[in-house]
Each structure stands twice: as structure tokens, then as C-alpha cells.
């Protein structure tokens, strides 16, 4: 990759053209992340920004890598690549026709240390959604990484969230928020056919299975339960 970084003359484009393309990709990533509430951006979309004017086959990969570096050095963002280990049953037919490269997508995460992030970056206006994300991921994780839809709602009901609730005072349409977690690739839907029809299962997807996220979630689950046990002991 260093060769590519040092020499872009193989693409028959000037430094200015290269910088313009990188800037365009960075701009697109930043705006799209905001517009889509953190849902992954398909690699195909980023490639199109390049291929609409330039025909070199390996130019999009080079530009995306340059954009990755720019996002890291300037914004402190990490452009993380997601790739489904296996397609979910709900969109299996569509994805099976695509190649592995096409299935790739990108998400942006902060590279700041936890303390700095908490102090300066954390958005209080959307923290309720982060809280919901954590709770759902924890429930699925404690169920062994996969949980039936009715079982999930059984536990969420105990916390005052109902499947039919479209006007929750904090979360609004709860079912829609859960669907957003699927789009953001924290969860993955899976339909399983049984004797009594199809059952919908939720399982952890790439972003929830990510090493650091998974470990921290487990850690915090233990922390909550232990803290609670300690409180009970004192009482």
C-alpha cells in the first residue's frame, strides 16, 4: 500500500485531482454518516464518486485509503470496514449475487480515548439511543448471541418498552429504533422456519461482535450485576 501512497502517477492524475477526489470522498462520508444516523456507507457509493470521472480500476481503493488516512489525521475518526461473514436470511437472495467486494461497507468511529470522548464529544441529545443499543446488545449477548424476537420483547417489556408502542416518551417508535440497530449493523435478523411458521431471531452483527465493543459490553454487564449484588449484601 505504501507504493500506492507514494506514487499515484500510475493513475494519470495530478496531485490536485487526487486531493480533490479524496476531499470529495471525505465530505461524502461525513455528510452521509450524519444523514443516515451512523448507518454503514456502502463501498460502492464511495467508488462511484471516483469512477464517474476516472476509469482506472484500482483508483477507488487508493482514494478510499487516502480518505481513511485524512479522516484519522484531521478528524480523529477511524473509517472501519465491515464485511458480512454471512448474509442474513432476510436479504440473502440479494446479497448472494454480489461479490465480496460489493458487500463491503464502512462506518466511522472516534479514535479518542474514552475519557476525552466522554468529556468533549459525547452527544447528550442522542445518549438515550446509545443506552437502548447497549441494553439490546447485552440481552442478545447474554442469550448466547442469538435470541428469538418474542423473547427479546419479553425482556424489553419488563423495562417498559412494548412492541406496539409508537410514542414512547424517550425513544418514540420502539420497533423502529430496534430496526435502526439492524441497519447500523449491531444486530442481524434471521428467519428460521419451524413447524409453526417462521420465527424471527436477532443475533449480534459485525459492530457488536467487534472485539473492543464486545469486551467492554461484557465488562459493564458484570459491573452492573456485581454492583447490584454488593448493594443487596449491604442491605
Amino acid at each position: 500500500m505504501s507504493n500506492l501512497g507514494d506514487d499515484f502517477s500510475q493513475f494519470d492524475i495530478s496531485k490536485e485531482e487526487k486531493d480533490k477526489l479524496v476531499a470529495e470522498v471525505v465530505r461524502y462520508i461525513l455528510f452521509k454518516t450524519h444523514q443516515n444516523s451512523g448507518c454503514p456507507i456502502k463501498r460502492e457509493e464511495l467508488s462511484q464518486l471516483v469512477t464517474k470521472n476516472y476509469r482506472h480500476r484500482s483508483l477507488p481503493a487508493y482514494i478510499i485509503n487516502e480518505a481513511k488516512a485524512k479522516l484519522s489525521t484531521i478528524f480523529g475518526y477511524e473509517l472501519r470496514e465491515l464485511q458480512r461473514s454471512r448474509p442474513s436470511s432476510t436479504n440473502h437472495s440479494r446479497l448472494s449475487q454480489q461479490s465480496g467486494v460489493d458487500a463491503k461497507s464502512y462506518v466511522v468511529t472516534s479514535q479518542l480515548p474514552a475519557e476525552v470522548y466522554k468529556k468533549y464529544v459525547e452527544d447528550v441529545n442522542t445518549s438515550h439511543l446509545t443506552g437502548f443499543t447497549f441494553v439490546v446488545i447485552s440481552i442478545v449477548q447474554l442469550s448466547g448471541g442469538k435470541i428469538a424476537e418474542d423473547n427479546l420483547w419479553h425482556h424489553l417489556k419488563r423495562m417498559g418498552l412494548h412492541e406496539t408502542d409508537e410514542n414512547h416518551p424517550v425513544l418514540g417508535n420502539v420497533k423502529q429504533v430496534l430496526e435502526t440497530l439492524v441497519q447500523q449493523r449491531y444486530l442481524q435478523k434471521d428467519k428460521v422456519s419451524g413447524p409453526e411458521g417462521t420465527t424471527l431471531f436477532y443475533e449480534l452483527a459485525e459492530r457488536a461482535l467487534d472485539g473492543t465493543v464486545s469486551d467492554r459490553v461484557k465488562q459493564y454487564i458484570s459491573q452492573i450485576v456485581k454492583k447490584d449484588d454488593a448493594t443487596v449484601d449491604i442491605l
Binding site: 466522554k118 442522542t126 438515550h128 437502548f132
Partner: peptide, 24 residues
């Protein structure tokens, strides 16, 4: 009815996910 303080949970766990809001 039970109500959970979702914001409080979110504030506690936000550094785990470190989500970025992009630019508006």
C-alpha cells in the same frame, strides 16, 4: 409501568461505542 433512564445508561456506555455523528 416501569421507566428506565435511557439517557443515563447512554451516558455511561457511550465510550464503548464511540459513535460519530458526522457533520450536519
Amino acid at each position: 409501568q416501569i421507566s428506565i433512564d435511557w439517557k443515563e445508561i447512554g451516558v455511561a456506555v457511550s465510550p464503548f461505542f464511540r459513535t460519530c455523528k458526522g457533520i450536519c
